[in-house]
């Protein structure tokens, strides 16, 4: 009895490891990229200063990637995240500039108020998406395409176009706790929270089941409307957290900030092994994808600058991102093929 139990445990560990071969490969790639740049760029890449500068950069899109992740696991997508993030940032900036200016309320009151306002705006944006997807039944890609335009549009209407400048949140973007910049801490907390939520809660379980087969989920008694609305609400909420980070780093809120992040976060999610057909995806994959993208961006930037000395380097990384995505997909293709071949040979 005892023996069979250990066998079962071993088996599940083994199968769990082989099931995670994608994550292992991604880990290897991430480490490889890091080592390669450390060697090629001696004294530049692997330095405290560079690590710190990378650490304040990646949380901005890394946080947004969680929003994309959870919607993609349900088989949907949320294109409106950047729109929602900017709208939330604008709401916070408005409160900071109108209530917190000279002779206004005290900062200790205005700052929490601004943050809460941002979170509320993000929540509303997410709930609207959830309503459109779950209750109206619009395909998520189209519903959030529409709200992307809507939220961005509202930002333009509110600001009239230009940015709203405020430096009152700069302390979030600039200060650090025990050597870790606050944005990184926020990112790490979100990673832990998402990991627990996806693996150890009923909601997380239902998210995976819904993403695998919505019809079976419905017939199994999962309230799919509620799960979907909650998913998109969370997505909007996470977007508003990203919005606060935007504001704290850029010291301004504007309607068209971070437009390229939509593409980038989808790319990160796919690189992280989150299936766009739903039901598959892990926080570990997402975090590795965020890190590898950041290493690649910074490393390539430095490399191009060193080689050509021109500002074109920022364009090269765009090329590299796309190339990396295709490369990983092709490697996956061959590894699947190889696995199939080995399986049939073994049989």
């Amino acid at each position: 009895m005892e023996e069979t139990k250990t066998k079962a445990a071993q088996k599940s560990l083994l199968s769990r490891l082989s099931g995670d071969s994608y994550i292992l490969r991604l880990l290897a790639i991430t480490i490889l990229i890091f080592i390669a740049f450390s060697i090629v760029l001696p004294g530049k890449f692997f330095t405290v200063r560079n690590l710190q500068s990378m650490a304040v950069q990646f949380p901005e899109f890394g946080i947004l990637a969680f929003a994309i992740m959870i919607t993609m696991i349900t088989g949907g997508i949320d294109l409106s995240i950047v729109g929602a993030a900017n709208l939330a940032a604008i709401a916070a900036a408005l409160i900071l500039t109108h209530l917190g200016g000279d002779g206004g309320m005290s900062l200790s009151l205005v700052i929490p108020l601004a943050m809460v306002a941002a979170l509320i705006v993000g929540s509303i944006a997410g709930l609207i998406n959830g309503f459109l997807v779950a209750k109206v039944g619009i395909t998520p890609i189209l519903a959030t395409l529409g709200t992307w335009s809507l939220y961005t549009g509202l930002s333009y209407v509110i600001t009239g176009g230009p940015a709203i400048t405020t430096t009152q949140l700069a302390f979030i973007g600039n200060s650090s706790v025990v050597g870790l910049p606050i944005p990184v801490i926020v990112f790490a907390l979100l990673a832990v929270a998402f990991s627990i939520m996806l693996n150890r809660t009923t909601f997380g379980f239902n998210v995976y089941m819904l993403g695998t087969n919505p019809t079976a989920a419905r017939f199994s008694g999962i309230n799919i409307d509620r799960v979907l609305i909650r998913t998109y609400w969370l997505s909007g909420l996470v977007a508003s957290i990203a919005g606060i980070i935007f504001l704290s780093r850029a010291n301004s809120a504007k309607p068209d900030y971070g437009a390229s992040y939509v593409l980038l976060t989808v790319l990160i999610a796919i690189l992280g092994g989150i299936s766009y057909t739903g039901g598959v995806g892990k926080v570990s994959g997402l975090v590795l994808a965020v890190l590898s993208i950041q290493f690649l961006s910074t490393g390539l930037n430095m490399l191009m600058l060193q080689l050509s000395g021109s500002s074109k380097a920022i364009f090269f990384r765009q090329f590299a991102w796309g190339g990396l995505l295709l490369l990983v997909m092709v490697i996956n293709y061959y590894s699947e093929k190889w696995k199939d071949k080995r399986a049939s040979e073994a049989a």
Partner: peptide, 20 residues
């Protein structure tokens, strides 16, 4: 490969290549 992912990748590649 899924068409969305391929073209998302090439969108980034083509535009990046053009610019740099």
């Amino acid at each position: 490969l899924p068409t969305l992912i391929v073209t998302l990748g090439t969108l980034s590649m083509f535009h990046g290549f053009l610019l740099f």
